[in-house]
């Protein structure tokens, strides 16, 4: 029963390309949405379950992407090895920074993670020699998975959908594990959790590392899928957008975060036709959803559906 939602998601992801073969909105935007699902689900572990905000999550996404980009183009490493290196780098940096950063609370934590994200972004822009500067790195070779070369939009849809499902499954399991319970205690009251004998610092560190790993994994896939990386994809606005996905969908719910990621990806594609009005509508919608459904779209809508059912 716990995994019912997961199977539903998997069937949905598999059916879409069969129902709409070679449709841009399924395979291209679907793949973008899939990457965002990976990022949002990872970030939700931190924001939703551990109650720790991060306004710098795009930095880990970028580390994965740049590790893959630099190692495959400049040193001709095989893709999977580069990906592993990216995970290692992002994980280690997350682990190093976790304790001092997660000691902070509320807006101070927001500031610290934001600053962290900006520092990493400045390095991407300024370290020309390694990162290609503001114009980024191009010519990233396709990913080779044990002899199978992932090339073309349809194959990428498959790979990213599988990866997104994997992160959802992992997230569901983490939430249900001992560390998941410890985290929920931290979110309620960190002090109380400590009193109960929960090692809150280590629980928070572990989840910070896990969420950084999810992001780096997505970043590495992103680099190969686009065959191109540039700092724009990892700036402050992207970090803010990731938080928005989690909150919009519904915090502390893996499926909420996933739905938020999909909703925001689609919203952007839909709003682009409004040209100069795009910003106005985007901002207005964000405010409206948060004012009228402070628990997020997923929770808000499922409550509305339940109410409707009861009335009938």
């Amino acid at each position: 029963m716990r995994l019912a939602g997961f199977y539903l998601f998997a069937v949905f992801a598999a059916l879409l390309p069969i129902l709409f073969p070679d449709n841009y909105f399924v395979i291209v935007i679907g793949a973008s949405a899939g990457l965002n699902v990976m990022l949002a689900v990872g970030l939700n572990l931190l924001i939703g379950y551990a109650g720790q905000i991060s306004l710098g999550h795009a930095a880990f996404f970028g580390m994965g992407a740049y590790a893959s980009a630099i190692l495959t183009t400049r040193f001709a490493w095989p893709g999977l090895l580069a990906m592993a290196a990216g995970l290692l780098v992002a994980g280690s940096i997350a682990w190093l920074f976790a304790r001092p950063i997660l000691r902070l609370r509320g807006h101070y934590l927001a500031m610290a993670t934001l600053g962290f994200g900006i520092i990493i972004h400045v390095i991407m822009v300024q370290a020309n020699h390694w990162t290609g500067g503001p114009d980024g790195l191009s010519g990233i070779p396709p990913l080779n998975l044990l002899g199978w070369t992932v090339d073309g939009d349809r194959q990428w849809y498959g790979v990213i959908a599988a990866a997104a499902l994997l992160t959802i499954w992992l997230s569901l399991n983490i939430v249900d594990s001992r560390i998941g319970r410890a985290l929920r205690a931290v979110r309620g009251s960190e002090f109380a959790a400590q009193m109960m004998g929960v090692d809150t610092a280590s629980a928070k560190t572990q989840i910070f590392v896990v969420s950084a790993l999810f992001a780096a994994f997505a970043g590495s896939l992103f680099a190969h899928q686009q065959a191109f990386v540039s700092p724009d994809s990892f700036n402050l606005l992207i970090s803010v957008e990731l938080v928005t996905m989690v909150v919009l969908g519904g915090m502390a719910s893996t499926f909420g975060a996933a739905c938020g990621a999909i909703a925001l990806t689609l919203l952007h594609q839909g709003l682009v036709v409004f040209e100069d009005y795009e910003m106005l509508i985007h901002g207005g919608l964000l405010m409206a959803v948060m004012i009228f459904m402070p628990q997020g779209l997923f929770v808000g809508l499922s409550q509305a559906v339940r109410r409707l059912k009861n009335e009938i």
Partner: peptide, 30 residues
């Protein structure tokens, strides 16, 4: 925007003010 969201979580209010910022930018653009 702020009064109706009374009692919302810190993160939710952050998103509301970010939404307001985007909205005001949109107005200025027009």
């Amino acid at each position: 925007a702020i009064e109706p969201a009374w009692g919302a979580s810190v993160v939710a209010t952050i998103i509301i003010t970010i939404g307001a910022a985007i909205f005001l930018r949109g107005v200025a653009l027009l």
